[in-house]
Computed example of a mutant assay.
Amino acid sequence: MVTHVPAEEYGDERGALLSFLEEQRGGIRRSVLGLTDEQSAARPSASELSLGGLVKHVAEVEQSWIARAKGEEPAVVRDRSNWHECFALVDGETVESQLAYWEQVAAETEAFVRSVPSLDDTFPLPDQPWFPPEGRASVRWVLLHLIRETARHAGHADIIRESLDGKTAFELVALAAK
């Protein structure tokens, strides 16, 4: 599991961006190590966030951005009435199933990024207030956005996990290495 990105290993810009994204994914994945589904669903603060919900959210977000970049519809479309469902496991979803789904999404992301002719290639965005107002985004912008989004939620995951059982990110790195 990546815990840092050594400069000599990523080679080019695509590799660097994908490596930094994977580094942040690892932080979230490690946050659920050794937890039951009940613990992963716990919300130990005033926030509605849970670790299981964060795993689901980042997988859905990554899939939706890459689908749009490919000119496809996202697998799950959320609007103002159901946006909160992306932050909670529902209808028999488990952390294990969401991690497996996210693994598939990550592989699709890597394959797509490696296949585009240029990171400068752009694609249209829906005309909704939560998308950039320019109406288009580049593949590079999407990767940077996914790194930022995943890193933000990795920080949330660190706090939630430490609130659940006191384990810090460093302890989880050691646990993952076993």
Rank of each mutant, 00 (worst) to 15 (best):
S118L: 07
G53V: 03
R68C: 10
P126E: 09
T109K: 09
V55W: 00
Y101N: 10
D91A: 14
W83Y: 15
E60C: 12
L125P: 05
P117W: 10
L99N: 01
V55Q: 02
D91P: 07
S64D: 09
V116R: 11
K70I: 02
E103M: 12
E85R: 07
Q98L: 04
Q98K: 08
F123P: 00
H84N: 14
D79F: 10
V76Q: 13
D91Q: 13
A107L: 06
T94M: 05
S118E: 08
E108G: 14
V55E: 04
A75C: 10
W130G: 09
N82I: 08
R114Y: 10
E60N: 11
T122F: 05
V90N: 06
P74N: 09
P117Y: 06
L125V: 00
A106T: 11
V76G: 10
W83K: 12
A69T: 00
H84C: 10
W130Q: 15
A59K: 02
E103K: 12
V58K: 01
L119M: 01
E72V: 06
S64A: 15
A111W: 11
P74W: 06
D79V: 13
V58H: 02
V61R: 02
S115T: 12
F131E: 02
P126Q: 12
Q104S: 10
P124R: 08
V113P: 03
S64L: 07
W65H: 09
P129K: 07
P133E: 15
F123V: 04
E110I: 02
R78N: 08
T94L: 03
V58E: 01
W130V: 13
F87T: 00
D127I: 15
W102H: 08
S118I: 05
F87E: 01
Q128Y: 14
D120V: 13
E72L: 14
Y101D: 11
I66V: 07
A75I: 12
S97A: 05
V58R: 05
R78F: 11
A67D: 02
G71D: 05
W102C: 09
K56C: 03
G52A: 00
P132K: 04
P124S: 09
V113C: 06
D120N: 06
P132E: 10
D121K: 08
V58W: 01
E103R: 15
T109Q: 03
L125D: 00
E93S: 01
F123M: 04
A67C: 01
V95M: 03
V77M: 14
E93I: 00
R80H: 12
R68N: 07
E93A: 02
E110L: 11
S81D: 15
A69M: 08
V58D: 07
W65E: 02
E110Q: 07
F131W: 14
H84R: 13
P74V: 09
S81C: 14
L119G: 03
V76R: 09
Q98P: 03
D79I: 15
